[in-house]
């Protein structure tokens, strides 16, 4: 093959165009905007979903791309939420957008420092460490009642209007919804850029085969710590948004429940796929919203069953099933 043949080789072209935007990628955003007009009474719930999407995206970066199996990601969500909460409650900082940046910075710093020591381990030890680290933060927040409000948390947070103009909407969350959607969009564009970059490619390499990454000369630990820090910062933004949108923080932001839920959401949608976070959060929260109050046991039973089935048969989650079906359909159509 000549040099130009090689450049036009399908594999080379596929790699060169891997990051291009697909038409359907506009869909989630159009739907989210449509919901704003179609369901004005459900925007509080919608805001919750969007925040969960962002949180799940942050986990996807660490778990889905770099393969860091963590059960303690709520540590960073909580760190962002408490940063905003404590600053606002004490009247130190109430401006929302810079508040997000502060939440990201604190969560990112905690992610960096903990990642520096935790990410030297792997497997079960890492799992335990992330779990214990989150427990440590949760208990500290519980104990430091003078600052964190302890078990009750902090409520009635005074948050300034966004860019000084748009008041947070207590009743219908209209402002919150658009604000969160905008932040989600920015963070998503950043994450998308990251996972398609050479850096993101090398994270995939670490996930697929760590030993080989060492053997091609990649500074594996440094890459993991950077990824973990970014992931923590994004989780911190999600937590900060949660505190601002609800005007309160409490221990639920830091608990095993939240960490397990976001993991389940990501896996349900499909991890390592960017859009799994959207699908998972939407499906999970809709089901939970409509089932868990009416039939709480049935919901839990069904959720458990779903997890078992995913672990045994459908590791790609909903998106993975979709891809599989599409491939089969194509194979069937292409048959002579």
């Amino acid at each position: 093959m000549s040099a130009t043949d090689l450049q036009n080789h399908p594999a080379a072209r596929a790699l060169a165009q891997r990051h291009r935007l697909r038409v359907w990628e506009g869909l989630p955003w159009l739907l989210a905007l449509a919901c704003y007009f179609a369901f004005p009474r459900y925007l509080g719930f919608g805001t919750e979903i969007l925040i969960t999407v962002l949180f799940a995206i942050s986990l996807d970066l660490a778990l889905g791309y770099a393969g860091i199996v963590t059960l303690g990601h709520a540590a960073f969500f909580g760190a962002g939420a408490y940063t905003v909460g404590m600053l606002a409650k004490n009247g130190i900082w109430t401006e929302p957008i810079t508040g997000l940046l502060l939440g990201a910075a604190v969560a990112g710093l905690i992610g960096f420092l903990s990642g520096l020591v935790l990410l030297r381990t792997a497997g079960l030890t890492l799992l335990m460490l992330t779990l214990c680290f989150m427990g440590l933060l949760e208990e500290s927040a519980n104990m430091g009642a003078d600052f964190t409000g302890g078990f009750d948390g902090l409520d009635s947070l005074p948050i300034k209007p966004i860019v000084g103009m748009f008041e947070f909407d207590v009743l219908y969350s209209k402002t919150q919804y658009l604000y969160v959607l905008a932040v989600l969009f920015v963070c998503f564009v950043f994450t998308r850029t990251l996972v398609y970059s050479p850096f993101g490619h090398s994270l995939t390499g670490i996930r697929e085969n760590t030993l080989r990454m060492h053997a091609v000369g990649a500074p594996v630990e440094r890459r993991l710590v950077i990824c973990y820090t970014i992931s923590a910062a994004i989780a911190g933004i999600a937590g900060a948004l949660w505190a601002q949108a609800n005007a309160y923080v409490n221990l639920s932001t830091l608990g095993l429940d939240r960490a397990a839920t976001v993991l389940i959401i990501l896996v349900l949608g499909g991890y390592g796929r960017l859009y799994g976070a959207f699908v998972g959060a939407f499906v999970y929260m809709m089901l939970e919203h409509f089932l868990s109050k009416l039939y709480p046991e049935a919901w839990q039973l069904g959720l458990g069953l779903l997890l078992v089935v995913i672990a045994l048969f459908a590791r790609g989650g909903i998106l993975g099933i979709g891809e599989e079906l599409r491939r089969r359909f194509r194979g069937w159509r292409n048959k002579p």
């Binding site: 990051h19 850029t193 398609y196 970059s197 050479p198 993101g200 490619h201 890459r223």
Partner: peptide
């Protein structure tokens, strides 16, 4: 990794 492109974060691998 060898040519030092791997740490780049903001440009696509492609």
């Amino acid at each position: 990794e060898r040519v030092g492109a791997a740490p780049k974060m903001l440009t696509p691998a492609g």
